[in-house]
Nucleic acid binder design. Structure first.
Lengths: 309, 309
DNA sequence: CAAATACATGAATAAATATTCATGTATAAA
DNA sequence: TTTATACATGAATATTTATTCATGTATTTG
């Protein structure tokens, strides 16, 4: 007897759901919503007239039927994947794209989004190389760079990505504990967390100026060697971090951090730029990465807008 | 590295094509056109950047890559199929539908079309039981019957399927050899092939009457115990068969037989009917089969029309 | 008990996929 | 060399599949 086959995508959803025993996590892995997974598994269950998961409350368990089927599917996915990889690599090696950027931007913005790129272009291998300080773009060691600045880096192709903002953030729990500061100058009495670098110090002078606060000397507060550590400290209720927008966007979105004094408009003329050697900007992989980066950056910019309103 | 997956349907197409080493036959197996198979395999080849078949002229050969991939796919299809079957049969046994009908109609019309039904309803198992002569519908031994007659079989649900026509046919080769008969009465000088039964004899008297030929006594010609044998003899250039429409439709379509004197309109008031026990006509499986039969019959009726024009 | 977490589901729609048709090309066979 | 056979392909379209959104329901946790 012949049977009907569900779509491959549904089988992959089943495999992932069975592995995580959790639709939500399976959904994250496959870059879709929980709803999509639920629908697809329901589809298989109906097509084959078989219950695959036992739902006892919010706990998922594979049924006996599930235990019988999933290994077959998993095995197939593994074997096909490895066979296809073997066959493909006899041809040209998988394309690699080397990207250099700042550690903080990589950690708090690029890396969390890179999964989308891999998902969209599984054939392009992205290597990232980070540095603590901005270094000049070295075309020997990198195909692309992401720079923070004013643009105009000499003989490089460049393209603006994302405008930078600077604002203070703290955790919701910290707010409850210390009470919300009423005026920008109240910040000066709270534990301030920031990276120990000269460039960001200057940006904070600008912020206080834009907020109408005259300061003689920036309070030292607690200083961290890396932005990500300062942000993490803020999440852990340690104080108010003075942060760059791209570094805290996701944390603010998720409610781990709250933006203080959103009414203070302090937009620097500094922005993130994408750079590469002139003439290489339209090479297929570079163009793919550029296009994707710009879409992600536009998305982030939109989220900033919403955060302001 | 994750890879993209082609749709399951394409993988099945690949498996079938690799088994037959012939797209056309694979297409027949899957009830699609050769074009569909070609497109799907091309899709896989492009997605994975792999050549699967070597096309040397009109001979297909699996490439090395094909040899590596196909067993993985075939194995998966087998394992999933048998697992799903095992799991399903623990529930209620696969539905079976018993159909009784005349041997000739089964052989020349129903059976060649049954594949479509199995394809559309893989869960319904059709059993056919044939008889040489019409017997009364026995609801103990059958769920459905197909009868030839005028309708009105007592206490049964009935539904007209297909109007019957009767006409002479012979092979194209026989025509060349003997020359085309010019007038219906010329038929009487040719070897006539027909089934040895009273009912069809009467229908032939009617045909000659409709053709304006007065005959005192029907020529005996060669008689066969079964319609299918008479038709086969005609295909084998043995003479002119006096045949019922449903028995030769496919052979005429395929050019194995040619209809003679299409201008003679001789439509009997006899037709094929579907019958079943009253009240069972809307049971799911019976309704499914009825619906499908009616669609196939309508298709055949349309083909008769075209054959006339 | 309220809040948070996780799966279910109907409706709407977007995006792929499947398929055919009408030809085209190449090759083998008559 | 014609004919027949078999795969390829572009265009058009039909059909499925995929996905999200906005809620709903059930369960656990604080």
């Amino acid at each position: 007897m012949a049977i009907r086959f569900p779509p491959m995508a549904a089988l992959r959803a089943l495999e992932a759901a069975a592995r995580h025993l959790n639709y939500t996590r399976a959904a994250e892995e496959l870059f879709v919503t929980q709803s999509a997974i639920s629908h697809q598994i329901k589809h298989i269950e109906e097509m084959w007239g078989i219950k695959l998961f036992a739902r006892t409350g919010r706990r998922l368990l594979l049924t006996e039927a599930g235990h019988a089927l999933v290994p077959v599917i998993r095995d197939f996915i593994r074997r096909i994947t490895s066979t296809v990889e073997d066959l493909s690599e006899t041809g040209d090696s998988p394309a690699a794209l080397r990207v250099t950027l700042l550690q903080s931007f990589a950690f708090k913005w690029l890396v969390p989004r890179l999964g989308h790129f891999n998902h969209e272009y599984p054939d392009i291998n992205v290597w990232i190389s980070t540095s603590d300080e901005l270094v000049s773009f070295d075309s020997e060691n990198a195909d692309l760079g992401i720079r923070l600045g004013y643009g105009n880096w000499g003989n490089l192709f460049e393209e603006p990505l994302l405008q930078e903002y600077v604002f203070p953030v703290c955790s919701p729990h910290f707010l409850e504990e210390y009470g919300a500061p009423e005026k920008p100058e109240d910040l000066l009495t709270l534990p301030l967390l920031r990276r120990s670098a000269v460039d960001i110090l200057q940006r904070w002078r600008d912020w206080f100026k834009d907020a109408g606060v005259v300061i003689k000397k920036m309070p030292k507060g607690t200083q961290f060697p890396q932005t990500s550590l300062a942000v993490q400290a803020a999440i852990d209720d340690q104080g108010v971090a003075l942060a760059r927008s791209a570094h805290v966007l996701d944390d603010v979105k998720a409610g781990r951090l709250v933006r203080l004094f959103p009414e203070v408009k302090s937009k620097s003329n500094v922005a993130y730029f994408l750079v590469c050697t002139h003439g290489r900007e339209n090479e297929p992989q570079i163009a793919a990465f550029r296009g994707w980066l710009k879409r992600e950056a536009a998305e982030s910019a939109k989220e900033f807008e919403q955060m302001l309103s």
